[in-house]
């Protein structure tokens, strides 16, 4: 069974934000604008989490790119009253936009604040409207949405592999964030395949996950910086 996972190498990450931009483009994220961002309603499936260390003149800031961690034991799925968010067989936490009632319980329950809500009807001003990705459904107002590990790309890659008459191979699927990363800091693949790059990285001594003590078992691994 495939179990999709991601590793993000903090030694390589420059904090450029290309992953965020690519995610917006790929997944038809609405442009909420400065006014809404001011109201703390900025809209990302993947954000750059600032980590500030040191003090005085020695302040050091680094960024952790943070998508949904696709927990193996997702607190958001447990609380959903209508089965609008679920854990797929391949380990991706999905959101059914046409069923979600917008109660935002999943957002309140997520320890990582990974989900976002459509406070208004989503908008794509100007030319953005013509650039909507046909592979990803747009969302109506009043529903919760989240990172899907670019599941549309997984579907496409699987179709292509089937057409070519072969199994899906490691490296066939690359989410938009990984693809756009100039430093190639993001690695994506099957955690259950012991030979895949991702499963080797996940086993490396540099690998850690955020708040492992919560028992959520995230499938996104960070690779700590080397000294």
């Amino acid at each position: 069974m495939t179990r999709w996972g991601m590793a993000i190498d903090l030694d390589r990450c420059t904090g450029c934000g290309a992953c965020m931009a690519a995610c917006h483009q790929e997944n038809n994220l609405a442009a909420v604008g400065a006014e809404q961002a001011e109201k703390s309603r900025s809209f990302h499936w993947l954000r750059l989490l600032p980590e500030v260390s040191g003090s005085g003149s020695e302040v050091k800031v680094r960024y952790l790119p943070q998508p949904c961690f696709q927990c193996h034991n997702p607190p958001c799925v447990k609380v959903c009253p209508v089965h609008a968010t679920y854990l797929s067989e391949e380990g991706i936490v999905g959101q059914i936009y046409s069923r979600c009632i917008g109660c935002r319980y999943c957002m309140a329950a997520c320890p990582y604040n990974a989900k976002v809500f459509n406070w208004y009807e989503p908008e794509w001003p100007g030319e953005l409207k013509q650039k909507v990705n046909p592979d990803v459904s747009t969302r109506p107002k009043g529903v919760v949405e989240k990172c899907t590990f670019c599941h549309q790309r997984i579907l496409t890659a699987r179709e292509e592999a089937r057409a070519a008459g072969r199994e899906l191979r490691d490296g066939d699927v690359t989410p938009a964030c990984a693809e756009s990363c100039p430093a190639q800091a993001i690695v994506f693949g099957d955690l259950d395949d012991p030979a895949s790059r991702i499963s080797r990285l996940a086993r490396s001594p540099r690998a850690f996950r955020l708040y492992e003590d919560l028992g959520t078992e995230p499938k996104v691994y960070y690779l700590a910086e080397k000294e």
């Binding site: 609380v79 009253p81 979600c100 009632i101 109660c103 935002r104 459509n118 009043g142």
Partner: peptide, 26 residues
């Protein structure tokens, strides 16, 4: 009040048609 709070009050009846008894909201 929870209905006021819903993003999609038009779908409130999903609670009955697709309800998950495992959810504390149910």
């Amino acid at each position: 009040h929870p209905v006021l709070d819903l993003g999609r009050p038009d779908r409130a009846l999903n609670i009955f048609t697709a309800g998950r008894l495992q959810s504390p909201l149910l």
